[in-house]
Structures are given as C-alpha cells and as structure tokens.
Design a protein around this nucleic acid. Structure first.
Lengths: 216, 216
DNA sequence: AAAATACATACCGAACGTCGGTATTAAAAT
DNA sequence: ATTTTAATACCGACGTTCGGTATGTATTTT
C-alpha cells in the first residue's frame, strides 16, 4: 500500500482499531493479526514500525484515554469563576454522566476480561487523577467552601467512590444498587460537611437514570 | 519419575511454586516451563494432567488464597460471644495486621505486574467478602452496636477502604501516608457513628508501625 | 488381570516480534 | 530544475516462544 505522508494518521488509526478490539475482545484475545485485519490495508510490519510491542500499543491506548478524560476535567479545574466546592460538584457531575453515557453506549471496558486496563486505571485513580482533584479541594479549603484537613485523602476517597466503586466495570450494578450506593455516599459526605450532592446534581442523576432506564 | 500415590501433594506443589512465580514475575511472564523448572522433577504433561490450562492454575491459586484469608475471618464471624461492632473491630484488626505482615515479608503481590490477580481480588472484595461482612454488620444492627440503614453499602465501603485503598498493592504507601489514610478513615467512620477504631486497635496499629519501622 | 491414574516425551499451531527488502517523500547537492 | 542522498513508511516471510495436545509408560487400584 502507498505510504502515508502523515504517519500520525496511521498511528491514530492503529490506536483506534486497537482500542475497539481491546474493548470488545480483551487485550489477551486480540492478536496483531486481528488488528491488521480490522485495519484492512496495513501490514504487521507497519504496526511494528510504529510500536515496539503489543504492550506499547496498549499503553498508548490507555494514555490517550486518560488524557482525553482528564482534559475536560482540567478545563473545569482552571475555571476561576467557580468556588472549590462548585468545581468539585461540576467534576463529579461530569464524571457520573460520562460514565453513565459509556454504560448506555456499551463502550464499557470489560475490565474482568481486561485486567491490564483495570490496573492502569487504578493507578491513575490514586495517582494523577487524585493530584488534580487535590488541587481543587485545596482551593475549596482556601475559599472556605470545603472544610477538611486532609485534602489528599479526601480526594482519594472521592475518586475511590466514583471511579472504582460506582463504576460499571467490576460489577455492573443494577439501577437500584447504584442508587443505594449514591444515597450512601451522599450520607457519608454530608456527615463530613462536604455537601457535594447539590439539588442540581441529584436532579441530573434522576434524569440520567430515567434515560438509561428508558433505553433498557 | 515414579508416580505419586497422593496426587494432592503434587497439586499443592504445583500451586505453591506457581503462586511464588506469579507473585515474583507476574502471570504473563511466567511460563509453564518456568513452573516445571522450578518444580524440578515434574513435567509439563504432569501439570496438564492436573490442570486444564494455565488460567485454571491461576484461578486455583487465587481460590486458595481467598479461602485461606476468609477462613480466619469466618471464625471471628461465628463467635457468638462478640457483639457486631466487636466482630467488625476484630476482623479489621486482623486484616490490617496480616496486610502489614505481608508487607514486611515482601510477599506482597505486585498487582501492577499481575493485573489478573488484581481483577480477581477486586471482584472478591465487592462480592463474597462483602457478603460475609454484611452479615456481621446486620448482626450489629440487630444488637444495636452498629447504627446504619445500609449494611451492604457500609460493608462495601469498609472493604474498599481496607482491601483496596489501604492495601500495599497498587501504591506502596509510606508509613506516614498510611497513617494519614487511617486517620482520615477513622474520622469518616466516627462521624457516621461507626466507632470501629477502638483504643486497642489504635494501639495495635502503633505497635505494628513501630515494628515495621524497626525492620526497615 | 484389567482398568484407572500419575506422570513423561514428542509434537503441533498460534501468535509475537524480527529482519531484509521496497516504495515514497524530503532535503541536499549539483 | 534535476539528481542524489537520506530518512522513513511499509511489506511479508521467517524464527522463536509458549500454551496446549497426543501418545506412550509406569504405578496403583480394583
């Protein structure tokens, strides 16, 4: 096949189809041949020209996903018109809705079939994502909207709640189970004077639930 | 080699060395050949006589670990001389100390190199382990020592705290980080009227920390 | 003695990664 | 402007590794 003048296009095509296949079949069950077949007009050698190993493709896929997911959150984090607690609320609303969206679209990574992705995600959750959220919480401490003495730990707990517990990855909770968890989390946070669940957020959640229920 | 009269011995030997190798090198990087080499006097065919696949070995290893870990907890759970909250305390103390012990012994599974183990463990945490703990919490509700309306969710949160967050798997926290997390968790649970951290438990933790610090 | 079981050995096939080669583009030289 | 040179995108056959199988053999059980 004719060589591509702009290799980034090829690289992105490889990442796109790889992600698609990893998601649907799992990393282990996806062969390089599968990827070339799905691409249609690219050879094994071409792939190995751009990536040194199958694992490196995996890493690149994950990196791209993480960057994209964090990108939107960053724009919220730097919005100077919001107080700390409001940023937190917005971020959580965004996280929940996109997670819900993924569940509806069935683009949810089957993490039990894809433990590699799970591990990377967990690392991100307790690592870089936590760093970002900690910054927001510190802001909230300074402007007096978030009362806590341990921003780092609070950040990690919240991410643990939303990115791990509530995520439809390990267990695909039923709607009732999900609601129960949310009620519980709200209760815990309220008692710690972290009123994250505003009326808006609860309403938004209701809308999301009715939507996904309608879809079912 | 002469055939073994008691195959269970062979099976356990396979599981022992497999676990050891999976822990140190990771599941992916451990070949069947590695296992036979480490065993020394057993062939590939022998292994495949007892296990249908490499993955089945993995599952068996995990199952054995889970059963052993849960066994001790079960004995606490059925102890009729304890109230619900006391059982909870005992279980947590046990969990923390054994986790700490593992950290000291360096028998900690490197979960980032072993995503398969991580995935299985996460499933257990939100699944069977949670079931067991929920039972204890319901007892505590009935005898009035644990005030909550959502035993299942409380159980899951606690396990999330101790089995995921605080575990030295994903991130090997420093002692200070670990202490901070524990202080935070204590604070959260106290505010929810779940006084899990008794004086004994805190003291026991102090002892553990000074021990592991002395060891360092 | 016959059947079942615990192993050993030789082998298969799939899949990862390599390597020599080709085609194409860009830059340098003339 | 044309030619040369270098770099890079890509191809596809091959080597190797490794999970798994087929078959043979010794030992135990019945």
């Amino acid at each position: 096949m004719a060589r591509n003048k702009y290799p980034e296009i090829t690289i992105n095509r490889i990442l796109d189809t790889s992600m698609k296949l990893f998601m649907s079949k799992g990393y282990e069950n996806t062969t390089i041949q599968d990827i070339t077949d799905e691409l249609g007009n690219l050879s094994k050698g071409a792939i190995y020209h751009h990536f040194r190993s199958k694992e490196e493709i995996m890493d690149a896929v994950n990196k791209r996903m993480a960057e994209q997911g964090i990108g939107d959150i960053k724009t919220i984090a730097v919005d100077s018109s919001l107080t700390g607690i409001d940023k937190l609320r917005k971020i959580l609303l965004f996280s929940i809705s996109s997670a819900q969206q993924e569940a509806i679209d069935n683009t949810v990574p089957p993490f039990l079939k894809n433990p590699q992705l799970l591990a990377l995600h967990m690392r991100d959750t307790l690592g870089s994502s936590s760093d970002l959220l900690t910054g927001v919480i510190v802001e909230g401490m300074n402007d007096g909207t978030i009362p806590t003495k341990q921003p780092r730990e609070l950040s990690q707990m919240i991410l643990l709640f939303f990115n791990v517990w509530l995520n439809p990855w390990m267990y695909t909770w039923t709607l009732d189970e999900q609601k129960n968890i949310i009620v519980f989390i709200k209760d815990v946070l309220d008692k710690n004077d972290i009123p994250i669940f505003s009326q808006e957020l609860l309403q938004a959640l209701d809308v999301l639930y009715s939507l996904s229920q309608g879809k079912k």
